[in-house]
Write a protein that binds this DNA or RNA. Structure first.
Lengths: 196, 196
DNA sequence: CCAAAAACATACTAGTTAGTATGTTTTTGG
DNA sequence: CCAAAAACATACTAACTAGTATGTTTTTGG
């Protein structure tokens, strides 16, 4: 049972790439089997239907990536202002997996799927919930170790910062150029400094 | 040539509602003619194809709304911190046209259309460009009248604020509840106060 | 090694899509 | 009032969609 797992993974990875670029609805099963060179029989052997594959992409590809790239860098950090800025800088400017013209995969799926597919909504909510959680804990730690003011409301800050991240991805899509990220990052730095 | 214009406008308005709720790609021409009770012949008399209709929605419906609801409140304002907060509060909490579960129409279209349709991209870019412009001017005025610090970078602030607005709409979609907006708005207020 | 299960392959279907061809009705200007 | 243009109506098409029916091949455990 090794080759079969590889086939399944190929489908998930290639389908994810297509969906990241084209969107979920406009990526057809025929698109997926054409680029994976896996037949329709194989596809439907591994997935009951398209939505089950979509959920598998979120749970099996996006979640681990989220933990690695979005949450990991926050867990060991002691200085929240610096850690959050550097995380955002890395995600926006350096991460070679996330392309400016295609935005943030989780945000794309949220925009497209939410409000008509409850399962996707829940899976995506868990995704952002984990990120929120880890960033909130970081700020609370900062309040304890003196790097963040005691009167700062962690939940507010996290919502504010995460909203900014998702929104600036939208600008990147529009302008198709990472330059759009720079003024945002500069002001994010200014804002984060006010929390000290 | 009065009735014909009414037909055209009906198509645009009903199509916009459908697209706002369901998305552009998943709103079919057949959906549109069914809800408008306009026949396909009439539809294609008024619009060369679906994309031409989509662009007409942006240019003839979204742009005027943008000027009225997003730009108007900024033009007469003297105190940028207050004006921007109140604009956002109004857009998020009070505007009865924008529904929390469906997000921001312009952001939705940006997410969906950009990166595969250059015409939509340009139209949407113009839309956000106008908003950016008016908010930048407001901040510059604030720097002159003493309500904003001289060392504030207007462009940075505008990108930061607008990114936040678009991003928090995403949270609203996920949680389907305006409560998600409240911590964001509180922190926005805090942030805007630091610009004084 | 060999049967049974797992994994994959091919050909199809029924429904939906944007768009067109070809009409008929309604409006308008002289 | 009446022809011509504008506005609309109906019936169709070709391409695409997710999904299925029915196979064949490959792998695996005893």
């Amino acid at each position: 049972m090794k080759k079969a797992e590889a086939t399944r993974l190929t489908i998930l990875e290639k389908a994810f790439e297509l969906i990241y670029v084209k969107g979920y609805q406009t990526t057809s099963i025929d698109d997926i089997i054409a680029t994976t060179r896996v037949t329709k029989g194989a596809f439907y052997y591994h997935f009951k239907n398209k939505d089950e594959m979509g959920l598998a992409i979120i749970n099996e590809l996006l979640k681990p990536t989220l933990v690695g790239s979005f949450i990991g860098p926050l867990q060991s950090a002691a200085d929240p202002s610096t850690a959050i800025y550097e995380l955002m800088h890395n995600l926006l400017m350096e991460n070679e997996f996330l392309k400016v013209e295609y935005g943030c995969p989780a945000a794309n799926l949220t925009h497209e799927m939410t409000s008509w597919n409850a399962d996707f909504n829940q899976a995506l909510n868990e995704l952002t919930g984990q990120w929120t959680e880890s960033m909130t804990q970081l700020i609370e730690r900062g309040k304890l170790n003196g790097t963040i003011r005691k009167d700062v409301n962690a939940r507010q800050v996290v919502m504010f910062v995460m909203a900014g991240y998702w929104g600036i991805r939208n600008f990147g899509k529009l302008e198709r150029n990472k330059e759009a990220y720079l003024p945002y990052l500069e002001e994010l730095k200014n804002y984060l400094e006010t929390l000290r």
